[in-house]
């Protein structure tokens, strides 16, 4: 009797896990990667306009979220594993190369996908989360009592603590942002909360995950970075500073009047930015000669 919030069109067993996805339209493929604690449904305002503009849109529920598999062990949420989910899904769908778009954790996955597999990436668009090599963390003063706590507290927070007293702590952390009314209902499904928290338990934060690996391969794809002024967790420098890791062309857009959830708060602007960017630039040359040691 409830309206199910889903646009899913299929599901595939790839990389050892069931991944549910939207596959809609014909044309150059665009892969849309959501973050925490969303699903493909984060992109509901962008999917149809992209399809109408002649793209084939692939929007998976990343592992642990939505209708995809939800392993309960932390190790299953290593970033490389999740990147491989996306690789395996695109291979399964017969897509050798795609535009990659990501928000939040999905942006972290998109960055990693782009520098590990440059030949599989056409254009790269990242929302909210900058390149993992940029060290940028808001000071205590800049953080408001809001969902920034996701980043800094979730690794130590238990499922039981978040759920008790009618999900009070979770609601306090989320405030009124994103799909805040939907999230607890999604996370209350069997195993969903543990799976979602495992992203944090396995990887600390989207930004810090790869910090220890000082030498990142350059991002060759033309890259669009989008950040919103209402983001309480992430600083603009995190995004603008990403330029030095991008060898392809770099564009930066700052969006006003949007919380961290830019695709929900400014749906038309996000659609417009994507349509004005995807497929418009040439990639930097893939280095062909081996570097001399």
């Amino acid at each position: 009797m409830s309206v199910k919030d889903t646009l899913l069109t299929g599901s595939a067993h790839v990389n050892g896990i069931d991944i549910a996805y939207v596959d809609k339209g014909e044309g150059d493929p665009v892969v849309l990667l959501h973050g925490f604690p969303d699903s493909h449904y984060l992109w509901r305002h962008q999917i149809d306009p992209l399809v109408e503009a002649g793209f084939r849109v692939i929007a998976p529920d990343l592992r642990g979220f939505g209708e995809s598999g939800k392993p309960q062990e932390v190790e299953a949420y290593d970033m490389r594993t999740i990147v491989n989910d996306v690789v395996a899904l695109t291979q399964h769908l017969g897509i050798p190369k795609a535009h990659i778009v990501g928000h939040d954790w999905g942006a972290a996955i998109a960055w990693m996908y782009a520098f590990l597999m440059p030949r599989r990436v056409d254009h790269l668009a990242v929302l909210s989360v900058g390149h993992p090599g940029v060290f940028s963390t808001p000071s205590i003063e800049q953080r408001k009592a809001s969902w920034y706590m996701l980043f800094y507290q979730f690794p130590g927070v238990s499922e039981q603590l978040l759920r008790r007293n009618g999900w009070r702590l979770f609601k306090e952390i989320m405030g009124g942002e994103g799909d805040h009314q939907r999230y607890p209902r999604e996370l209350a499904k069997p195993g969903a909360l543990t799976a979602a928290l495992n992203w944090y338990r396995a990887n600390r934060s989207p930004e810090s995950e790869l910090r220890v690996e000082a030498n990142f391969p350059p991002v060759l794809a033309p890259t669009l970075g989008i950040w919103s002024t209402g983001d309480k967790a992430l600083l603009e420098e995190g995004m603008t500073g990403s330029v030095k890791f991008v060898k392809g062309s770099w564009r930066y857009e700052r969006v006003e009047d949007a919380s961290h959830w830019i695709p929900l708060d400014q749906p038309e602007i996000v659609t417009k930015l994507l349509l004005g960017f995807l497929g418009t630039e040439k990639a930097a040359a893939v280095p062909t000669r081996r570097r001399r040691l």
Binding site: R163, N165, G166, W167, R168, P184, A188
Partner: peptide, 12 residues
């Protein structure tokens, strides 16, 4: 039935 409260928008 307590989960219906929390998920239905109850606020402690």
């Amino acid at each position: 039935v307590e989960e219906a409260f929390g998920l239905g928008g109850a606020w402690e």
